[in-house]
Amino acid sequence: MTSMKITRRTFLKVSGATAAGTIMGGLGFDLSPAEVYAQELRIKGAKETTSICCYCSVGCGIIVHTDAKGKVINAEGDPDHPISEGALCAKGASSYQIAVNPHRLQKVLYRAPYSSTWKEVKWEWALEKIAANIKKSRDASFMEKNAAGQVVNRTNGIASVGSAAMDNEECWLYSKMLRALGLIYVEHQARI
């Protein structure tokens, strides 16, 4: 009896039968899918925001859809974008999971010297403590003149790496701050 089931091997016969006529019946169309899913297009009426992908340097256009509460509900290619024309690779197509992801860092965390755990802290506290650290390290390591007596005005004791992950304006602002603090060890992804 089992040999009588429709199997992969008999598929073409089935379609052949349809081509030959409707003698078998039962192969017609029925309910529309809209009736079974009873679901509207989930992005209908959603707010659209254009963005540019954060991964490689092609610069593909992305449209992010957010619902009435401002939550990201969809992210897909921007068809108007002349480079990507709506396309996204595996990474770009995953953008939604950057926004909607329980692993995201959501708190300011502090790890004290010799501690084995993170502690949640407030922005204000963290920024003030970092600022105090900066001042302490800067003042302690600042070199106004080198051995030859030339003015160098640099902070030898602080280094920075980062970041191509920031926007242009943020990069510029960061560079400005670091140079004002006297850092010379300023590096980022472009070097590696």
Binding site: A140, G157, I158, A159, S160, V161, M166
Partner: peptide, 8 residues
């Protein structure tokens, strides 16, 4: 003594 690893 100090180090920033900013977005890296």
């Amino acid at each position: 003594t100090g180090f920033f690893a900013w977005g890296m």
